[in-house]
Every structure is written in structure tokens, then in C-alpha cells.
Amino acid sequence: MSRVQGAIDKSQVLMLYRNLLKAGNKFADYNFREYAVRITKEDFRNNQNDTDGKAVEKNYQYGLDQLQLMRRQSTINQMYAQKMSFMDPRVSDDIRKKDEMSVGSRTNEEDDEH
């Protein structure tokens, strides 16, 4: 993995921010996607006034590692995704209405589940 060298300028941080949001938005799972976007925004907001070069460098490296992780995991998440969450904004209102009407496939078998 690439190591960060030298001072980090603002454009690099912005680029990382954009890339993280882009990677986070690629999760097929609605909940993972929302979480990735939420914590990315939070982390950048919390650290936006950092002036300590060392801390910025450390956080930047952390962000790069997270970016690689999110790219890998969102790809895997897409490969195995089967159904979208009911809450996913990509689900149309028609499908939502239909699913609310369906009785579901709950089995009422009496079993000795523990």
C-alpha cells in the first residue's frame, strides 16, 4: 500500500473525500451505503480545522486505507446482493406498495427452535 510522504495539501484531501463518498455510494446494501456516507462526512467535518501536519498526514493515510477497503467491500457487496432494502431510494413506489400488500412468506410451522 502506498505511504503518504510530505505535506498534504487541500486539493488532495478534497479528492480523497470525493473518492470516499463515491466508493461508499457503491455499496449495494442501503444500510452500508448510508453508513459509509454518514461517517465519511462526520470524520471530515470533525477534522476540517486540523492544522497539525502530522495529524493531517495520519488521517490522510487512514482515509486512503479506508478507501481501498471500501472499494474492495463495495465490490463484494455488489457481487452477492440479491434484493434491495425496502427503504432503498432506488426502489420504486409501485414496488413498495406491492410489497406492503403481500402477506410475506412467514411459515407458521410449530417447531422446537431454540
Partner: peptide, 16 residues
């Protein structure tokens, strides 16, 4: 990917 939903009637997954 291997199918994991059996006898499912809804097209979306329920909110967890």
C-alpha cells in the same frame, strides 16, 4: 451469486 431467498414473495428485503 448463489440464491439465498427461498419461497420469497416480496421483491425487497424488509427493514432490519
Amino acid at each position: 451469486a448463489p440464491e439465498v431467498y427461498k419461497n420469497s414473495e416480496s421483491s425487497t428485503k424488509a427493514i432490519y
